[in-house]
């Protein structure tokens, strides 16, 4: 059974077809990149796959279960997490608290009104583990809003990783980060995914260095349809993809 399976996804914004019949299957142990020019439907696809948007038509199955309209809370519980293109954090919570929110919900302890957060050794250990995986181990008491941009991005992803999901969708994990920092962030991310045991990573990415440097598989979208779905080498050799997606980038 595939981990994540989308069949015949359509999504319309008025007359505009953001998704025009997209089908894809994600298996375990894959790092999949979704590429495509602006307006190709990448973010819409991620939003549909993670339950933020209900598709106009089509089905999404996660571990064989229909997840259309399930909502982010239950998806998180099932084992799917995501991060956002724009940094999405809790500005006035510390780094440790930000990660702790995810750990608390992963452990199902959000309903505990009467226990002390700081005395909970299991929560503390898991928070520290995730924080150090992301190089934030010495900044746990910093307010998230005061971190440099790169660290905010890492924290955003770290809190999603702290859910210990099976699948994680990353919407431009390195957007807004200087070129020099991009590879460092990706290295941290891939290592952390291995340590935490994440089975599949799906990312939307514009930076082709990152896409070709890390992906096992690339899905090229164009005008709401899958143009190509193959290995990085296959993508490089695909003339249509080079013309519509890559060409624009290298010019």
């Amino acid at each position: 059974m595939p981990l994540l399976e989308a069949t015949g996804l359509f999504h319309y914004y008025g007359a505009f077809r953001a998704l025009n019949g997209v089908s894809l299957t994600i298996e375990e142990h894959q790092f999949v990149s979704i590429i495509g020019p602006n307006g190709a439907g990448k973010t819409t696809l991620v939003n549909v796959l993670t339950g933020l948007l209900r598709p106009s038509r089509g089905a999404v199955r996660f571990k064989g279960r229909d997840i259309v309209g399930l909502g982010p809370v239950r998806l998180a519980r099932l084992g799917m997490a995501r991060s956002f293109q724009l940094v999405n954090i809790f500005p006035r919570l510390t780094v440790a608290e930000t990660i702790a929110v995810a750990v608390v919900s992963r452990l199902g302890r959000g309903g505990r009104l009467w226990s002390s957060l700081t005395d909970d050794a299991e929560i503390r250990d898991r928070v520290l583990e995730v924080a150090s995986l992301f190089g934030l181990g010495d900044k746990t008491s910093h307010p998230a809003g005061a971190l440099p941009q790169g660290d905010k991005k890492l924290l955003d992803v770290a809190s999603a990783f702290a859910l210990r999901p099976e699948v994680i969708l990353l919407d431009e994990p390195t957007s807004g980060v200087s070129t020099g920092d991009k590879h460092a962030i990706m290295e941290v991310l891939v290592q952390a995914a291995k340590r935490i045991g994440i089975k599949a990573i799906i990312q939307v990415e514009h930076d082709m260095d990152i896409v070709f440097g890390y992906s096992d598989r690339i899905i090229a979208l164009h005008e709401g349809q899958v143009l190509a779905d193959t290995t990085p080498d296959g993508i490089r050799d695909d003339e249509r993809v080079v013309a519509t997606v890559l060409g624009k980038r290298t010019r």
Binding site: T50, P72, V73, A76, V101, S105, A160, L163
Partner: peptide
């Protein structure tokens, strides 16, 4: 964001 880290 809270919803995406599993808080109802």
């Amino acid at each position: 964001k809270a919803e995406y880290v599993g808080v109802s």
